[in-house]
Design a protein around this nucleic acid. Sequence first.
DNA 1: CGCGATTTGTGCACCTCTTCACAAGCGCCT
DNA 2: AGGCGCTTGTGAAGAGGTGCACAAATCGCG
Lengths: 230, 230
Amino acid sequence: MPALPELPEATVARLPEYLRALHAIAETGHETVSSEGLANAAGVNSAKLRKDLSHLGSYGTRGVGYDVALLIEQIESVLGLTQCRSVALVGVGNLGHALAGYDGFASRGFRIAALLDADPSRVGEEINGLVVRHVDELPRVAVEESISIGVIATPAPAAQAVADQLVAVGVTSILNFAPCVLSVPEGVDVRKVDLAIELQILSFHEHRKASLTALPGGLAATDTQEAIGT
Amino acid sequence: MPALPELPEATVARLPEYLRALHAIAETGHETVSSEGLANAAGVNSAKLRKDLSHLGSYGTRGVGYDVALLIEQIESVLGLTQCRSVALVGVGNLGHALAGYDGFASRGFRIAALLDADPSRVGEEINGLVVRHVDELPRVAVEESISIGVIATPAPAAQAVADQLVAVGVTSILNFAPCVLSVPEGVDVRKVDLAIELQILSFHEHRKASLTALPGGLAATDTQEAIGT
DNA sequence: CGCGATTTGTGCACCTCTTCACAAGCGCCT
DNA sequence: AGGCGCTTGTGAAGAGGTGCACAAATCGCG
Ligand SMILES: NC(=O)c1ccc[n+]([C@@H]2O[C@H](COP(=O)([O-])OP(=O)(O)OC[C@H]3O[C@@H](n4cnc5c(N)ncnc54)[C@H](O)[C@@H]3O)[C@@H](O)[C@H]2O)c1
Ligand SMILES: NC(=O)c1ccc[n+]([C@@H]2O[C@H](COP(=O)([O-])OP(=O)(O)OC[C@H]3O[C@@H](n4cnc5c(N)ncnc54)[C@H](O)[C@@H]3O)[C@@H](O)[C@H]2O)c1
């Protein structure tokens, strides 16, 4: 059993990006990669990458770099991806359909194990070989499929109720697409994806850039680092 | 012209959340709101909220709170949402369809002004009153519709090429759904949304929680702050 | 076998962000 | 008018993250 390495949250958020980059590098046939090379592929600073990897007691070789296969194994192990995790998707509407048909989950260690909706007219529909079931069946489904992550793609007003139902059946990780805050008991992790927020942040920078160029003879030595980190 | 207030990036990222919360509060009929109340609605610490708002030279009243309507106006002004921004969506596949049919954009100050795809069989299709056009028409469309933000929803291998095309026609803000890093010239902002990354982060915490509970008589006084920030 | 080229791992300084705690300000009630 | 309770705005301390710069380690080659 690997002693829990107490990773910084910022590092955890970057590990999946490294993993993706590593898989891409592995496909090109390279057996090792330098911190510089991997950092470029992942879009980060090489020093940051080295520090991140050092936190998981890394297996790099000075003068050579990192063994790609070994590093993939290490990161997957730390992220808990050695076992395939089952996901329940609640709300099979516009967005839910896209998610249900997305093959990028399976290829990265996740299995959509259940599709759930409250609308009776949607129940029974088959998407990608999976039948939509009624959300009331959640307790049974959760056990049968040993769900470990819940994804909420319902309208915002229904999201809190769905979250409560997920928590009630023992789900402790939720990915929320509805634009609202969820209140959950301690010990439950919620992550949120909100498109409108992303666009509004872009809008701000667009606005700022416009103001800057509109300024009279603004000195060109203003700070202009771009490509914001996630 | 409002002097640029030099906002911290972390604050900018939270302003849209405050804005959403404010709109919700406005609908309940409240004319003012305390930092405590707004902070709850937005899912943040009240001290953080006050500091954030103080950065935009805020208009709160001690002993009373913030004027909801005024604050909405202020934040929208700072985010550059006073003008409706036009968005071009490139890649009208699985995910693109969902985005094209999403009404959450219009309601928050954005207008999907163009749908573009490279697949000839998709060109001409009408979605939500908008006709899919060929991606080669981007230069003309960008000017006609005065596009200010580009959204990439193509497969990863095509994303960089699409980004280059967007940059070429003058787009300086890009929202990327493809799981890859984009390289863009200085002055262009890129934000990324990657579902698999979100799930993997959740997986990590799930993994960690499992290890903790599996530990023998671990003292209950371990840190257990949850509900991670975006 | 030793040397130079290369690359990792990390101490350190800097910076940003968070959180606490409280003075200053405002309105209301007497 | 004055006092009291409530709420904002902010200084300061602390926590966390970033990036530089370099010593330590390893490999390949002569
Ligand atoms: N469509 C997008 O591109 C998009 C983008 C970003 C965010 N979102 C958000 O994702 C959510 C879903 O968007 P959508 O466009 O798919 O909406 P939608 O209306 O098309 O789909 C919502 C689905 O949820 C189901 N539902 C409603 N209440 C439910 C409940 N209590 N339990 C289970 N299922 C329930 C409905 O029957 C429907 O099928 C919304 O909150 C939206 O704001 C959507
Ligand atoms: N479907 C999802 O739920 C989902 C979730 C997260 C991320 N993503 C990512 O979003 C992207 C799109 O996913 P999808 O499921 O919609 O894929 P998709 O294959 O259904 O759609 C991709 C579309 O992009 C078009 N396209 C390809 N090359 C193009 C080019 N050069 N210019 C313009 N258009 C081009 C294709 O014709 C197709 O219509 C992928 O990168 C995927 O990884 C999808």
